[in-house]
Design a protein around this nucleic acid. Structure first.
Lengths: 194, 194
DNA sequence: CCGGAAGTCGAGCAGTTGCTCGGTTTTTTC
DNA sequence: GAAAAAACCGAGCAACTGCTCGACTTCCGG
C-alpha cells in the first residue's frame, strides 16, 4: 500500500503511455490518443496527471527504476566477474528489447522533450543505474577482462546497446541473449576462463 | 551549376534547419522559427520546399552525403588498415560533434519523424555510408586488428559513437581526435604495429 | 440510505500548427 | 526598359493541441 502499486488506473495509464510514446514518439502522441488507449475521455487524464509531461516523467522514472531493480536482483548470487558482465549485458538488452515494449526507449529518445526541471528529477535515477555499470566494468578490468579505460568503455557499450533498438528484430533468428553474448565477446579480452 | 550548390537561399535554409532541428527537435521547431532564422515570412518557405518534412529530408540527405564524401576523400591516400580505422573514427566523430552543428544528429534523432516514403528515399544513402564502414572493418579483421564478427561490431561501434552527442562537451579537455583514438583503442586487438 | 470522496464525462477555450494564395516586389533576360 | 520569371509577403484558414471546468456517476463507510 505504501510504495506498492495499488494505483491500478495510474499504472495502467503509465503502461499505455510507455507503449504509445515508444511507438509514435512523445510529441506525436496526443492526450486524446492516451485517453483512448485506456478507454476514457481526454479530460479525465488530468485527474491522474497534472500535465502531459508528468506522464512522460512517470514513464521514464518507472523505466529506469525497473531496470535498476531487475539488474540488482539478477546480480545477487553472481560473483564471477565474467558472469556478472554477462548478466549485465543480458538484463540490459532484455529490458530494452523485450516484449513489454519499451519504457527504456522512451527514456533514450525523448530526453530532449523534457523541461530542465523534469530532467533534474530523473538524472539521479539514471546515474544510479550507470554507477552499477561502472562498478561491474571496474571489477572486470581488475580481472583483466576489459581495457582499463572503463569510463569511456561504459559509454561506448551503453551507446552500442541503445542503438540496437534501431535495428534489432525480434522476429529474426538472433535471440536477445545470443545478441548480448556476442556483443560482450566484442569487448572482452582473452585471459583464461578459470 | 549542375550539381554544385548555387541555390544559395535553399542551402541557407537547410543549414538553418539543421541547426534548429538539432537544437530543439523537428516537432518542436515551427515553420515560423525556420523562417525567422533566415529572415523571411513563414509563407515564403513553401516556395522553396513543399512541406516541412521535405526540409527534414533535405537536411538528412545533406548530412549523410557530406560525411560520405568527406570520408571517401580522407581515405584516399591511406592504405594501412590501422590508419584507415583511425581515419574512420576521426572523420565520423568530427562530423558528428564538430562546430558546424549537427545535420547528423538530426539524422539519428528524427528518423522516427519521417514518413515511410521519405525513409525509403534516405535508406540507400545511409546504407552507402555503412558499407564504407563495413569494408574497412573487414580489412581490419583480415589484418587481425578487430574481431571477426564485423557486422555486429559495426553496429556496436556506430551506436557507441552516435551516443557521444549525449555526453561529449566541446568545452571539456578531451579533444575530438583524442576521443576517437581512445574509442578505437577499446576495440582494437594487440598485433604488432608494423 | 445517506453523504462525500473518488473518478469520469464532454463540451469547449485559447493558443498553435502547417500550409494556402492572391498580390507585390525583386531579379533576370532579351 | 519592358516583359517574364523568380522570390517574397502576410493575412488568414482549418485543423489540432494541451488543458479546464462544472456537472454527472460510481463506490463505500457509517
Amino acid at each position: 500500500m505504501t510504495t506498492a502499486e495499488e494505483k491500478t488506473r495510474r499504472t495502467e495509464l503509465i503502461a499505455a503511455a510507455a507503449r504509445l510514446f515508444s511507438e509514435k514518439g512523445y510529441e506525436r502522441t496526443t492526450v486524446r490518443d492516451l485517453a483512448q488507449a485506456v478507454g476514457m475521455q481526454s479530460g479525465s487524464l488530468f485527474y491522474h496527471f497534472r500535465t502531459k509531461e508528468e506522464m512522460l516523467v512517470a514513464v521514464m522514472a518507472a523505466g529506469i527504476g525497473d531496470i535498476t531493480d531487475c539488474l540488482r536482483e539478477a546480480l545477487e548470487d553472481v560473483h564471477d566477474p565474467r558472469e556478472r558482465l554477462t548478466t549485465l549485458f543480458r538484463v540490459h538488452l532484455n529490458t530494452l528489447l523485450g516484449e513489454d515494449k519499451g519504457a527504456l526507449s522512451v527514456l533514450l529518445y525523448e530526453w530532449p522533450s523534457l523541461s530542465s526541471k523534469a530532467r533534474d528529477q530523473l538524472v539521479p535515477l539514471r546515474d544510479e543505474y550507470e554507477t552499477l555499470w561502472q562498478d561491474i566494468l571496474n571489477e572486470a578490468a581488475r580481472a583483466g577482462l576489459v581495457p582499463e579505460d572503463t569510463s569511456l568503455l561504459r559509454r561506448l557499450v551503453l551507446g552500442g546497446l541503445h542503438w540496437t533498438i534501431q535495428w534489432y528484430n525480434r522476429q529474426g533468428s538472433l535471440s536477445i541473449d545470443e545478441l548480448a553474448d556476442r556483443m560482450m565477446a566484442l569487448i572482452v579480452r582473452e585471459p583464461a576462463k578459470a
